[in-house]
Structures are given as structure tokens and as C-alpha cells.
Design a binder for these strands. Sequence first.
DNA 1: TTGACAATTGAGCAGTCGTTCAACTATAAT
DNA 2: ATTATAGTTGAACGACTGCTCAATTGTCAA
Lengths: 120, 120
Amino acid sequence: MRENLVFCDCDVIHGDVVEAARARMIDEGELYDLADFFKIMGDSTRVKILCALDAGEMCVCDLAVLLNMTKSAISHQLRSLRQANLVRPRRDGKVVYYALSDDHVRDIFEKGMEHIREVP
Amino acid sequence: MRENLVFCDCDVIHGDVVEAARARMIDEGELYDLADFFKIMGDSTRVKILCALDAGEMCVCDLAVLLNMTKSAISHQLRSLRQANLVRPRRDGKVVYYALSDDHVRDIFEKGMEHIREVP
DNA sequence: TTGACAATTGAGCAGTCGTTCAACTATAAT
DNA sequence: ATTATAGTTGAACGACTGCTCAATTGTCAA
């Protein structure tokens, strides 16, 4: 435990608490993945896209019209959402339709809403 | 609907879909709040802090030792978490203890975990 | 094959974010 | 009062992010 003091600018006040917390900590890699996942949800444009797709699949152009943004901007964000496995593309001719790829999104949306609505 | 074309660089392909989505969209203000909330969760340091506090309240110094970071860096992040109503401070003498202020955090953590574990 | 349009991509820019650093406040002990 | 320690704060710096713009790909129709 002492070796932590090398990197920290203070003494350990509650060594037992720290060790207990350390023992219960989720795997560090998973925590990074979790943060990355929330990071994707942490942008209003992407949140709007997800909210829109919750009503049914839409093409890039539809989303651009709905959100008053360029296709390019939408496409960039859809790329992030695709890489995070939150949306799924389906090509039909020249048009690419996007849909939610995961039911968890809905759940997480709801939990988030509960939180922000409960707080003054 | 036509006025959107002024700001968009494409034609409306599925006007009915767009209108249906628009009608079902969550209030714009709430969507921004939601994105802000996820933004707070979208940082590995803050996720680690929340994960640690899930084991019980801790002081700034304990968190600094646990995460191998300076008190200053931790304090800055706790400020964000405080403002988002995710943690609650309790002063006892010179020491300030922080605790989770909301049960939703746990739920959202779990939902997020489900998502990242289910995806290859 | 040529033209048109949906969509994607990469470079670049402006704005945001997290950490560091130094200065500061608050509380307690001597 | 002085000193020490826990914590906070603001400025500054580098890294990251989201949008724009221009160029490009993919698909269809003429």
C-alpha cells in the first residue's frame, strides 16, 4: 500500500476503506469501456439521433432534415454510434437506413431520464 | 416542413417518417440535460470515483490514493459530480467525505455493463 | 458511360475537457 | 498566533471532439 504514496500528494487517512474499495472495484478495462460507452451517449446530437431511431429506422437524409443538420455531420455521428454498436445500417439501393441495434439503449435512456427528472 | 430544406443539404426522402419521429421526440431541453448527464458519466476518472463510492463513502484523500491521482484532480472531478447531483459531500472536521447521492447511478452502471458485455 | 444523388471520408478549425500547478480557504492542534 | 493538513479553486496547457468543407464512393437511371 505504501507505494501509492509515491504517486499521491497526501497520506492515507483510511487505509482499510481504500483497500476495501480497491477489492470491490470493477475490472479497470471494463471501467474504461463503460466510460467510453457513456461518452458516446454524452452528446446531444447523438442522443437526438438515438431518440429519433427509437421511433423506427431512418435514413441519413431523414435524420439530417429532422435535426436541421448536414448529412455529413449526421454521418460522422452515425459512424461513432455504429462503432459503439448502438445503431445498425441497412442499405437499400442508394439509401442507407439506420436502426437501434440494442434494447439497452432504451433502458439506459429511461434510467437517465429518471435521474434528471428527479433532481431539482 | 419545407422550411427545413433551407438548413439541410438534401431533399426529404420520407417526410412521413420524419414527421412521425418529430412528433415522438422527447423535449429538446430534456435531451440536452440527458446528454449532459451522460457526459458526466463519460470519463474514466469519474466512473472510477463512482465505482469506488459504491463501496461506501470516502474522503478526497482516500480517492486520491486509490486512483493514484492528486487531490486537486480528484477534487475537480468531484465538483463535476457534485454539480450533477451524483455525489454528496459531508464535512467532518478537516475531512470531507463523499457518497453517492442517487440510486440511479447503480442502475445505469448495470445497464451500461450489460451493454458492453453483450457486444463482441 | 454519363449524370445525379445518398452517403462516407479526411483534413482543418474552433471550442471543450482533464490535468497540472500554484495559491488559497477551512479546520484542528500546538 | 502559528503551523500543519484536507480540500478547493482558477489559470494555463495539451489533448480531444464535433462540425464544416471538399473530395470521393456507391448505386441507380437515362
